[in-house]
């Protein structure tokens, strides 16, 4: 493989490996690496295949360069998240599941005691529109306002019953 062909192949692999980076950072990184290669070759004073091969070997694999970028995190890249967030604006906030959940938690709590709110909370957890944090907070609200006082009363009843017998 010729020297320039080796460099092109390396840069191609770097571009392919750097997909998780934001486009501007990706171009910047490729530019930096290209410049580094040219500087190293200028310092070596030769541009044959063996010198290029040695320079590229010292740089490391393109995948390693990309993964050593501090802001690369596992999962989809942040700029993809930002685009998804923009797209999410066009998705209606309320789906059938969310409406049913809120109805069961409000009207259902009055018309179908216990069953309504329980099913409502199940629907809340099935929904993808609320974050896990919001689902946890909603569940905690129900537990704190309803379950804890009821448990407290049951405990009081239990001790009252035990002391009266």
């Amino acid at each position: 493989m010729e020297a320039d062909e080796l460099i092109r192949d390396y840069i191609g692999r770097l571009e392919a490996a750097s997909w998780p980076l934001p486009p501007d950072r990706r171009a910047e990184l490729v530019g930096e690496v290209r410049e580094h290669i040219e500087t190293a070759l200028a310092e070596a004073g030769r541009r044959d295949a063996v010198t290029v091969h040695n320079v590229l070997e010292r740089l490391g694999r393109p995948e390693e360069i990309v993964s050593s970028e501090a802001d690369v995190e596992p999962g989809p890249p942040r700029w993809v998240d930002a685009r998804l967030a923009d797209a999410a604006v066009s998705i209606p906030a309320w789906g059938g599941l969310e409406i049913a959940a809120v109805l069961l938690l409000t009207v259902g709590a009055v018309l179908l005691p216990l069953f309504g709110p329980a099913l409502g909370l199940v629907l809340v957890w099935l929904s993808t529109r609320w974050t896990t944090r919001e689902k946890v907070i909603a569940s905690v609200i129900v537990v704190v306002i309803f379950v804890l006082p009821v448990l407290g009363l049951l405990a009081v009843d239990g001790t009252a019953g035990a002391s009266s017998s």
Partner: peptide, 30 residues
């Protein structure tokens, strides 16, 4: 155990949770 208390507390708890969820969705839309 006062059954009336359950009748009051349960809807109250569920409605409070529902209000929180509605507000959470509404805030995200803004």
């Amino acid at each position: 155990m006062d059954i009336d208390l359950i009748r009051v507390l349960l809807p109250l708890a569920a409605i409070a949770a529902a209000i929180f969820l509605v507000v959470a969705l509404a805030r995200r839309r803004r």
